[in-house]
Design a protein around this nucleic acid. Sequence first.
DNA 1: GTGTAGCGTTGCACTAATGCAACGTAAGAA
DNA 2: TTCTTACGTTGCATTAGTGCAACGCTACAC
Lengths: 304, 304
Amino acid sequence: MQRKKAPKEALRWDDVRLFLALCRARTVGEAGRTLGVDSSTVSRRLNALEEALATTLFDRNHEGLSATKAAEDLRPVAEETEEAMLRFARAADGLEREVSGLVRIACPPDVANVVVTPLLRELFTRHPALRVEIAPGEAVIDLTRREADLALRTVRPAQGDLVVTRLTSVRWVLVAAVELAQGLGTLRAWDDAPWVSWGARLSMVGAAKWLEAHAKVEPVLRSDSLMVQIAAASAGVGVTLVPEPSAAHYGLVPVRLAPSLRAAAASWPTDELFLVTQRALRGVPRVAAVWDLLRERAAGRTAR
Amino acid sequence: MQRKKAPKEALRWDDVRLFLALCRARTVGEAGRTLGVDSSTVSRRLNALEEALATTLFDRNHEGLSATKAAEDLRPVAEETEEAMLRFARAADGLEREVSGLVRIACPPDVANVVVTPLLRELFTRHPALRVEIAPGEAVIDLTRREADLALRTVRPAQGDLVVTRLTSVRWVLVAAVELAQGLGTLRAWDDAPWVSWGARLSMVGAAKWLEAHAKVEPVLRSDSLMVQIAAASAGVGVTLVPEPSAAHYGLVPVRLAPSLRAAAASWPTDELFLVTQRALRGVPRVAAVWDLLRERAAGRTAR
DNA sequence: GTGTAGCGTTGCACTAATGCAACGTAAGAA
DNA sequence: TTCTTACGTTGCATTAGTGCAACGCTACAC
């Protein structure tokens, strides 16, 4: 007597699909074909289902299948289930294809140029109906006012019903145009070089604070725009602190430092780059498409 | 660029169950607990589902899950699906527990005694609420008139909306009571022994036809009841042809035959035993219980 | 700071599910 | 009869799915 001890097996939802296919097919093989599996699999799963329900659903003989009364009683309920399942699939498909329309991205200008712009080609290849608007600016755009769908920020936002993910962290480096860096050689004192730095309005920026704290130099140029600083540095106006990826992107090279300066350089700021959107927008396909691509392509391990 | 080539993956119905559990849980682990699987499994299957739907359903961070707009749109449809699935499970459960009531079995008397009766103890152990009525008789009971739920027959019924399965095949053997068999020794001619055989009414029975064709003997006793024949043989009245299992059951032993008789003996009839019921009754649990036990216990390989 | 706890994810060994091919049975054709 | 065909089932090698344990990340307590 080798009876089963555990009829505790939960009903697997896929078994209802199997059951329906069997109701509609005249043979096990035919049911398997509609399900895309082998007839042996159908046979075994039917046996398991019957054991789980402690009922015989179909009689099998050399002519194929014949439904028992139990199966015929169950069939209408199973078909309701299938209709609901089809509605679900249709709803899911409906969501899926809406990757079109305009996505507005707010981000710092350098991030726009260095991070976002290089990804646009791939984004449009993936989703031809997608359109993008980049709103660059140092100021913090208020997402809750719907000025943008997506924001890239260097500070983690706290308030609001927002979804936040950290993309990467970037170190800042002291760079200059190639000729100036060569002309300077190894920097022995901070004021041995002309500096380009931040204006009064954004003096709370990490780089500005570092300059204030560690290298009390008087910049030859101040600007609240990082892009202006980069342009000035590129023109050989002076040295400046910029995020490493931006330096590489614009052909600025690191300035060599004498050992005496390296301790202070160790506390150069580190930016973290956060991707932010409103919770309600997170699942909207056109937004999700950009979100996912940024996570996939722009995310990096923490630089320690 | 290792993108997926095949988003052709069909939606598995169980994934909707997973999706619902995730909607209701605040964490992956909680969803896994309600589903009875590990959190790692939930994590992987969610990733697969999102890839299949090409949609992000949940954002995951250190606090757990948060549903995206897509997930919230899908949730009501998924819950309808679940309700239908629960109705199915309830219907299946309802069927399952009805193994009780009376099952009427029509069969030849020897089959009743030899095959059915020995199984009753196990049947009642399995299904204590079950009751059985055995209607023994040589005549063919008409199942379509609902005189019986189940029939055991030696001829395959052709007409009607019946379900038929062959249980086993049995050879007939020439037997006698122990003392008579010893007294006879090896039989050299058919009429060296007194015969017990069928009456006129059932002369079409295989054994009667054989006797007519091969051994033109005049029986000392005729009866249309196999049970009477067996009783007579047991009392030492004569030799008779009976199905092999019945002979063993009633302590009758084979009569030894001289080589000259063996050729004719080779064409002793072979009965097949068929289990029959109406299609509509096949799935009724109390009937299915008996059907299944008979198939399981009484079915044998073909005796060739 | 530094540790701790909770979350989702990943590596790996293992189990269950699957496909393929061979089998046993039954009905009809030659 | 024998052969053929179609059916469901079973054995076995392979694959996909799973659980456990370790990991990385984040927040919070200290």
